[in-house]
């Protein structure tokens, strides 16, 4: 069974079509990289898969199919998709004052698993992620992203992913805001986590550093709301050399 199948997806916002019929596929446990210029439609696809687009029926029209683990997601809400095992990291994660990371993840896990969890169980999951990610042990007790730097916010996103254990993680510019060393470390953490859990990654990036330690199974190049090319690492090398010219 494929992890993700996107069939003929179109997205229009305020009457303007942004995605013009995307076909996209991922196998279980694959890493698929999505490249393309700004505005090529990479984040829009991520938003359609996650279910962010289409909620505001007056403004957003989504057509086509999103099939995740053999299940049609098209009618499922954003949060229901998350509970099925789709995770998405944000380019610019919001601050949520008064709500700490621990509470948020605790609620998320309880709703997904439909059972009450002891504080200790949640704490253990977080402690493990904290160790692997090498972040401050107090992160979980802090209000979500409040006062956090860009780089810290990105690490917080990965921390949440590791606790929520999704089957598909869409990482949208997870490396922006990270310095060279931190990006290298993040690459290593992501590769290790994939090895351990078999998570599939859809990675949207402009910075190839994040891919350094990771396997890459497939590369999609997007242009102007369409898939322009599908291939392997050679596309990455080429983009690094000459940009998106070809």
């Amino acid at each position: 069974m494929k992890l993700l199948e996107v069939r003929g997806v179109k997205l229009a916002v305020d009457g303007r079509e942004i995605l013009h019929g995307i076909d996209f596929e991922m196998e279980q446990g694959e890493t698929v990289v999505v490249l393309g210029k700004n505005g090529a439609g990479k984040s829009s696809l991520a938003g359609v898969v996650m279910g962010i687009f289409g909620e505001d029926k007056n403004r957003e029209k989504v057509a086509g199919k999103v099939i995740f683990n053999g299940k049609d997601m098209s009618k499922k809400s954003l949060d229901a998709r998350a509970r099925e095992g789709i995770f998405m990291s944000f380019q610019a994660p919001v601050e949520i004052s008064g709500v700490n990371m621990m509470e948020m993840l605790w609620s998320a896990l309880e709703e997904r698993d439909r059972k009450a969890l002891a504080r200790r169980e949640v704490e253990e999951k977080i402690a493990e992620a904290v160790r692997e990610l090498g972040v401050d042990a107090f992160t979980a007790g802090r209000e979500v992203n409040v006062g956090a730097s860009g780089g810290e916010r990105k690490k917080n996103e990965i921390l949440q992913m590791m606790v929520l254990e999704p089957k598909l993680a869409i990482l949208d510019e997870i490396d922006s805001g990270l310095d060279v060393d931190a990006a290298g470390k993040m690459s290593e953490v992501l590769a290790k986590y994939q090895e351990k859990t078999g998570v599939g990654y859809m990675i949207i990036t402009h910075n190839m550093r994040i891919l350094e330690k990771m396997k890459v199974d497939k590369v999609y190049m997007f242009d102007n709301g369409r898939v322009k090319r599908i291939g392997g690492r050679e596309i990455i090398k080429e983009v690094e050399r000459v940009g998106f010219l070809k």
């Binding site: 962010i52 954003l78 949060d79 944000f90 998320a108």
Partner: peptide, 25 residues
């Protein structure tokens, strides 16, 4: 903020309650 919490699998109702609790924390 609501949307962010929902992408973590928290239903809209629970997300609203969480934000209200945060507001009064």
């Amino acid at each position: 903020q609501l949307r962010y919490l929902r992408t973590r699998g928290i239903s809209e109702k629970a997300a609203r309650a969480l934000l209200v609790r945060g507001f009064t924390e």
